[in-house]
Design a binder for these strands. Structure first.
Lengths: 223, 223
DNA sequence: ACTTATTTAAAGGAATTCTTAAAATAATGG
DNA sequence: CCATTATTTTAAGAATTCCTTTAAATAAGT
């Protein structure tokens, strides 16, 4: 089983089973809910990677469920599965934030391929961390500002990556030395890290230090 | 006007006009055809970046047109615009190679956004050259084997890029010297290029020289 | 087999990257 | 506002990586 978790909200037991079996065969991790309420309860605990959403449900309606999801995250892809075939419904849902819309009865193979489209995007973005206008690609060890690649040296990249991974936390020079150089000593006295921070700031156009922030007496922090 | 050329095949004059105006407003370059025949005539001369295809046409049918396009290229995106709303039709056309399928009457804004999806892909792939399992990204100066990035030095990348751009042609050492070093002299005698070719071959796993081929007495060639 | 071209290995030179040291600037707490 | 401590900046030498040359080994063509 791969690590892609799909929540399927579908009250028709037969359809729910077909979806669940097909996705499981394709190696996805599927969890089925028969009401919007039960889904939201679980959603508030564990976030899935993708949601398959029936519109007509007992109790809370699919459109409301979508709005709840979008309150929390704009990134989780939601595919609507609905008997409503009117273009107006489709447009309305897509505008509310759905990523795709399939009219029932749908072809299960088409559903799988549409899920796969999202799965591939997920795989590609898995190694990327985005903060502000910056993107750090851990897989290829690359760094971007908007769509423009910025060449960093080895140590510059390592430092930046560690700050990215510890976004929001203050990272001390000692910690960086330990993690990147594997040394415990030299910590104080040496200004090597400061030098690297300086050239990183230059390269990524953060010379007024609003992105990599210096925390007096403690280290550096992003965000 | 951007450099994205769209061919729209649509016999209903009113719809054709709506499409043409909307796409033109979005800065695309649109050319409209009212029959499959007239489209194919132009297609054989100049290839578009995307095709909008009505299914029900006078004369040759849309499905046939799609097959003709796919005979030539698997890469040109084709969006079907059709009054046929049956899932079976949709599946059938998607299996024949259509990239998307919109049921008439469609929302023109939705059409624009679906065209834009393809346009963004086009922009992203514009700077990439793929040969065999290798991808060379001119924009970011990167090189991949399958999905794995291979680090090349400056000169290594330049040499490889020139060979990629001249795929199929034999490139002499003199030519490489002129283009990459900007020098006319030193050509003979120096083995610098040979050395770089050697390390490129090592890095890209082409040590048996089937990708970068040596042409005795003339230079190197890819493909 | 002979000639000419290409490949390979090794070493020195060039360029880039990293580290250190010291002066200049900025932040904090009394 | 001053004294103290931390950070930033500049510059220069050390270390590493990249480039070029040389010469010997191998391969290709006649």
């Amino acid at each position: 089983m791969n690590d892609y978790l799909i929540y399927s909200i579908e009250d028709d037991e037969e359809i729910a089973t077909i979806i669940s079996i097909a996705l499981t065969k394709s190696d996805f991790n599927v969890k089925t809910f028969d009401t919007g309420e039960s889904f939201l309860e679980e959603f508030n605990k564990i976030k899935p990677n993708l949601v398959l959403l029936d519109l007509m449900l007992p109790g809370i309606q699919g459109e409301e469920v979508l709005k709840e999801i979008r309150k929390y995250s704009l990134d989780i892809p939601v595919i609507i599965l609905s008997a409503k075939s009117l273009i107006e419904d489709k447009i309305s849902l897509l505008n509310t934030g759905a990523d795709d819309y399939m009219v029932k009865p749908f072809n299960i193979k088409e559903l799988i391929s549409r899920v796969n489209v999202n799965y591939r995007k997920f795989l590609a973005s898995k190694f990327k961390i985005k903060i502000r206008e910056y993107t750090l690609d851990q897989k290829n060890e690359e760094f971007y500002r908007y769509d423009n690649k910025i060449d960093l040296t080895n140590n510059e990249f390592k430092i930046l990556k560690y700050l990215f991974l510890n976004r929001g936390k203050v990272v001390s020079r000692d910690e960086l030395f330990k993690v990147i150089w594997g040394k415990d000593d030299k910590s104080n006295s040496s200004r090597t890290i400061d030098m690297h921070i300086k050239s990183i700031r230059e390269k990524i156009l953060d010379e007024n230090k609003t992105f990599i922030v210096s925390i007096y007496g403690n280290g550096y922090k992003i965000e």
